[in-house]
């Protein structure tokens, strides 16, 4: 670092850190002002954070409408992944002929699920969670069964809401 160029001695009074009252003595008018500046600046900074957070937080994209598919597309004894917009659901047509639907989001950490025809299980690709056709956990880390969704049969259509 370069040497100070000016031989004048430093002025101690102006070297006190801003906003810190001199120890022990009653707060002077200057201390109060420094506090005020600090408080206002901090408030302004916090206020600026609000639009920043709103701007950066993901845009809410609705809940997504119902998912509709034809019953013929879900053969008996299989599970089909159906999507509508950004929403994915698993439609189960079990061996007894009943149609059920589950959210295609793994209850472990939110990964996508898919139907494994060989194992005849619903599998999560991330951490190996496995679910049966009834949505219950067969193995792996998922803490609970799949979220079941409402199924309506409208003619030959399956409507999942």
């Amino acid at each position: 670092m370069t040497q100070p160029m000016n031989p004048q001695p430093p002025l101690p009074t102006v070297l006190e850190p801003v906003g810190e009252p001199a120890g022990g003595t009653a707060p002077t008018r200057r201390d109060v002002m420094d506090y005020a500046i600090g408080v206002v600046a901090a408030t302004a900074a916090v206020a600026a954070a609000y639009p920043a957070v709103r701007f950066l937080s993901p845009v809410p994209t609705g809940k997504g409408g119902p998912v509709t598919l034809r019953l013929a597309d879900v053969p008996k004894g299989t599970v089909t992944l159906a999507t509508a917009g950004e929403r994915s659901v698993l439609v189960v047509h079990n061996d007894e002929g009943a149609v059920r639907a589950f959210s295609a989001t793994c209850p472990h950490l939110g990964c996508g699920l898919r139907w494994d025809e060989d194992e005849r299980l619903i599998r999560c690709g991330c951490h190996g969670g496995r679910f049966g056709m009834d949505g219950r956990v067969v193995s792996g880390p998922p803490p609970r069964a799949l979220t079941e969704l409402t199924v309506d049969m409208v003619g030959d259509k399956v409507v999942v809401t």
Binding site: M1, P4, M5, N6, Q8, P9, P10, L11, V14, L15
Partner: peptide
């Protein structure tokens, strides 16, 4: 460097 800055006018 506050000291230096304080002496520099």
């Amino acid at each position: 460097g506050a000291a230096r800055l304080a002496t520099h006018r």
